[in-house]
């Protein structure tokens, strides 16, 4: 059965983001396994891009490190193929449209399907341009994840009605990055989705603490955490596997409403 769908069954999904190739491909491979062991329900692997306009400083810098170390989408395909033999976690690529377009959309999706990628998130491909990929994604069984934002308002209906997999609900204005406070309009945004669609809603942008994860999980179907994990990769480099695993466990426990084990 569809791995993404399964990730939302009878639980709130914890969706973890890492920048592929930061600091190197081997570490990314280890992180996919570590995050799976820590209970991540879906893992997003960011394809580094030279000009990530939707990202804040943390992920921008991670992309720079990854590209400087020679990461390419071909190397990520190979890595996913290897790790797919070890984990059954749904794996998504998060990428800007240009790397997909220039690689060849058809070729890109074929390789995604071959190596075991389940879906793709493209932050600079809004609803109006989504058919740049939708037909090819469908052909290769790759789920195209749509996004809604606090500014979407009346656009939510058309986006939700056409959404597959889950809907990525952007919690706040601005770019990715850790925030001390999350916009309180999230639950209203999600209610608008639920009025027209049964697609699961996962909230991302700005979430970092177990408390925030628990609060956001309470009003949604899942929580996406990126910058807070990438920050650990920046801090610990090739030794980030342990700290990331520990952090992911805390998030997972918080979302399951278990006691936070903290020192």
């Amino acid at each position: 059965m569809n791995r993404i769908k399964k990730a939302f069954e009878n639980k709130k999904a914890f969706i973890a983001f890492i920048t592929g190739g930061d600091p190197d491909i081997e570490t990314t491979e280890k992180l996919v396994i570590a995050l799976t062991e820590a209970g991540a329900d879906i893992i997003e692997i960011g394809i580094p891009f030279s000009d990530p306009i939707a990202e804040g400083a943390v992920i921008q810098e991670a992309s720079e490190r990854s590209l400087a170390n020679g990461c390419t989408v071909d190397k990520l395909f190979e890595m996913v193929k290897r790790v797919r033999e070890k984990v059954d976690t749904p794996l998504l690529f998060m990428t800007y449209i240009n790397p997909v377009f220039v690689y060849g959309k058809e070729q890109f999706m074929k390789k995604c399907a071959d190596c075991g990628i389940d879906g793709i998130i493209v932050p600079d491909l809004p609803f109006e341009e989504s058919d740049e990929l939708s037909y090819i994604c469908e052909q290769h069984g790759i789920t195209q994840i749509s996004m809604i934002a606090p500014t979407s308002e009346e656009r939510i209906k058309m986006i939700a009605e056409n959404a597959g997999g889950f809907l990525y609900c952007v919690s706040s204005l601005g770019v990715t990055g850790v925030r001390s406070e999350i916009n309180t309009g999230v639950s209203e945004m999600i209610q608008k989705v639920k009025a027209v669609s049964s697609v699961p809603c996962a909230v991302g942008f700005g979430i970092s603490t177990p408390e925030q994860a628990r609060d956001m999980a309470a009003v949604s179907d899942g929580v996406i955490i990126g910058s807070a994990i990438v920050r650990l990769a920046a801090e610990y480099g090739r030794d980030c596997e342990g700290p990331v695993k520990k952090y992911a466990r805390e998030i997972k426990y918080a979302m399951e409403n278990k006691n936070l084990c903290r020192k």
Binding site: P126, F127, E128, M147, I148, S152, R155
Partner: peptide, 24 residues
């Protein structure tokens, strides 16, 4: 289900984050 606006041949379009779509 596509609204092709602002095209010059195949060029142009609106490839921006959803957050900005209502603004444009």
């Amino acid at each position: 289900m596509n609204i092709r606006r602002g095209r010059f041949g195949e060029y142009g379009g609106q490839y921006i984050p959803e957050t900005l779509m209502n603004a444009v």
